[in-house]
Design a protein around this nucleic acid. Structure first.
Lengths: 212, 212
DNA sequence: ACAATACTTGACCATACAGTCAATAAATTT
DNA sequence: AAATTTATTGACTGTATGGTCAAGTATTGT
């Protein structure tokens, strides 16, 4: 919400700078936490003077809010990969693939999200109780339908979802630990492929679906 | 490390107060992050004046260090539950049980640990490269032996370990989200039992071991 | 009883930080 | 080209916080 009307120019200075600031902020919030993230550091990473950051965003909290909302949007988009029309094997496979892709492409966002939840979700509590709950319940009932129809083994759908969320996001949130145990090197393309395969194999077999 | 010698009295005022402070600090660090945790708040939660906290611990960082080391010790103790002499089914089952117990009994510690890793492990990097790497490699070779001996399906041992870590710790680190999706209520005893069962079932079946 | 050591605590200080402001420059509109 | 809006930035301010200190009280040892 700018103070005055935004020009409809597609790449206005305004939206360009906001984007740069938000990307810098995502990284800084992920690495230092909300309280540890200084506006000065965000400005430095963005390559702007601090006062300029405050010209575009009134408060640090407003920046944080925007970052968290962005992450939620990306998460919700990925959530649509869990397409129940496909049947359990395909739906779960594609969802896992998508979530691993996200862990790789948006590690900072994942960390900010994790920290937000760990601190009691002060900003996105509403979304948890709204969209996320709705989405989970919807997917849950489909999973129960598959179980009732003998298409997969019985399991509490919530636990299955948590298992997918945790295993995939772990590769973002604990990436530092994983890299350390990998000889200090980040995962290669083929290692990321192996991640997908391992997770899909265990979870699919784990609920009675033959993988590949 | 006290400035002078510690009296050998088992429950000296010193060790009592340190314990109270460290427990308070663990909670505050978990909920607010390192930078967001104020010594004043730690003192308030501990029920002591701030200056008293600084009498026992020189700096906030020293308190944080102690908290993180405590967590690592608890983690390592749990790690011994992965007893390779028992064979894959029992070893994995007991380890999962133990880790879920830990997620329930030490949620704050788990969060502090997660945040420490997410911020690049500034304090415990040495442990990651030392004890944790050693432990992981040791368990990894045993898992590979089981696989070679046909006792379980092939899987990259690292991914199996990450799967256990992530699924179990998720119930601590994302407890707020889980409670929200559980109607705002914390898990009951029987729900925690179900967590263990779900995780064990999926992972054991997922690597070709019949559960229960 | 006395000394010595350990603990307690309000008041204080230096620093770092979020946010402001005014003065200037660049871009856009008329 | 004048006017108006938008963007840039160094300098500044008030507040919150980590840490100190000195003056006290309790505890322990002799």
């Amino acid at each position: 919400m700018p103070a005055k009307a935004i020009p409809f120019r597609k790449f206005s200075k305004r939206s360009q700078n906001q984007k740069v600031i938000l990307e810098a902020a995502e990284k800084v919030f992920a690495e230092a936490g909300f309280a540890g993230a200084t506006t000065q550091l965000i400005a430095d990473v963005a390559g702007l003077p601090k006062a300029n950051v405050h010209y575009y965003f009134k408060t640090k909290e407003e920046i944080y809010r925007r970052v968290v909302y962005n992450i939620f949007d990306i998460w919700m988009e990925a959530a649509s990969a869990f397409d129940t029309a496909l049947g359990p094997k395909e739906a779960l496979s594609r969802y896992i693939d998508k979530k691993v892709d996200l862990a790789r492409s948006h590690p900072y966002g994942s960390k900010v999200w994790a920290a937000e939840i760990m601190h009691g979700a002060p900003i996105i509590q509403d979304y948890l109780e709204g969209q996320l709950l709705e989405w989970s319940n919807d997917r849950g009932t489909h999973i129960e339908r598959w179980i009732a129809g003998g298409e997969m083994d019985p399991i509490d759908p919530a636990h299955l979802l948590y298992m997918i969320w945790s295993t995939t996001q772990h590769y973002a949130d604990f990436g530092h630990q994983i890299n350390t145990l990998n000889g200090g090197k980040p995962y290669s393309d083929s290692q990321w492929q192996a991640v997908k395969k391992s997770i899909k194999t265990v979870i699919l077999k784990g609920v009675g679906l033959s993988p590949d």
